[in-house]
Simulated scan of single mutants.
Amino acid sequence: MTTPSEPGHGRPDPGLSAIMSERRQLTNLAYRLLGSLADAEDVVQETYARWYAMSRQQQDAIASPGAWLTKVAGRICLNVLTSARVRRETYVGEWIPEPLPEPTEWITGRSDGLAVDPADRITLDESINMAFLVVLESMTPAERVAFILHDVFRYPFAEVAEIVGRTPAACRQLASSARRRIRAAQAPATPAARQAQIVRDFKQAWEAKDIDALISLLDPDATAIADGGGVVGSLLRPIEGAEQIVRSLVHLEGMLRNLTILQRTVNGQPGLIAQQDGVTVSVYAFEVAGDRIKRIWAVRNPDKLRPWTAGPRHQESQEQQVAPER
């Protein structure tokens, strides 16, 4: 997103740095609400466009610009979520949230030729893992907005109510309903080191085509979901059962020649990527329960792999990420 040095009212804006400092917060909020980095970028751009469409007098009259920006972004996200439900009815196959790499793996460059600003990066925490985002997809738009704003970003229900357009009491009920959905879907916690080892074992077994080892690493009732978006070949429906999943994985490797499997962090959790001729063609996120893999999400839609494929790697490993708090 291009940032103006002057907002168009004929004189420098002394509050520009303070306004733009909210950008990462808005990007983090919008991604959690929408599950799409591209949509989150659009929301942030539209939010700032509305700010700079106001006169200087109107801007000065706003006591808390950060709260105003959040309110506007939240309302835009609510509208996008409502329309997204209609769009996804025509989406080819399963829809999976856009996967994100860890900061040191982030790719600079965008499909529109603009560089990815560090402020557009997403803070990776427990509210960003794929299992969490998938549960959010099952919520109503109002539930999702109320829950993320209150439980993740710690906004009081009085402020959430202004964004959602309901009473604080109604927003409290929405967040409570969302919490129940999260608790019902959560798998027992597995230590991160153990998760990483299981994913590493899965990678090695896949590369070795060790069918028995692959099956032993999967829960017997495991589920695999793939998202090709109708752009590339992919499963149109979830696969259930360890043996069926393994058969599909072996078939995929047979279809894609020179497939290289690499272990990477996906949305803050141990995951895998598949590369063909040096280009990432699939990103795999896992949910591990105990010592078995319970769910696999495979994203193959190229439109959702921009941070993994566009341009050279960005190596600013020391960049400080901003936590999702007010």
Rank of each mutant, 00 (worst) to 15 (best):
Y48M: 06
I245G: 00
I225E: 08
T82H: 07
M139L: 15
T309A: 13
P270W: 01
P7E: 08
C171W: 07
A161I: 05
L69G: 02
V92P: 01
F132A: 13
A208S: 12
T223W: 06
R179K: 14
Q244F: 00
P97W: 00
Y155V: 04
D112R: 08
P324S: 12
E287S: 11
T2D: 07
T47E: 03
A222Y: 01
A38W: 02
H251G: 07
P168V: 04
A158L: 12
Q204D: 15
Q195G: 06
T104F: 15
L214A: 03
L252S: 08
S111R: 13
P99C: 02
P14H: 02
S17I: 01
Q25S: 07
P307S: 10
A310Y: 10
T265S: 13
G278A: 08
V80N: 00
R179I: 09
S216W: 00
Q318C: 10
A146I: 09
A63M: 05
V164F: 10
P141Y: 06
L37I: 07
Q318P: 00
L37M: 06
P12Y: 03
R183S: 12
T90A: 13
P238S: 00
T70Q: 10
L214W: 02
E207T: 09
K294S: 09
W106V: 03
S64N: 15
I296H: 02
N28F: 06
A213D: 04
R180M: 12
T70V: 14
P220M: 05
S248A: 13
A169L: 11
S248V: 04
Y31M: 08
T223N: 07
A242L: 00
T265R: 12
P97V: 01
E162I: 03
V135F: 01
C77G: 04
P14T: 04
S64K: 08
I239T: 06
L149F: 10
D219E: 13
A38I: 04
Q25T: 07
N301L: 05
L26P: 00
L133I: 09
A73F: 00
A242R: 01
I273N: 03
V135E: 11
R237F: 13
R154V: 06
R194M: 08
I296K: 01
Y284M: 14
D60S: 12
P302L: 08
F132W: 13
V152D: 11
I293A: 02
P191S: 08
D277M: 12
P188H: 10
R85A: 04
V86E: 09
A224K: 04
R23K: 12
V44I: 05
A49F: 13
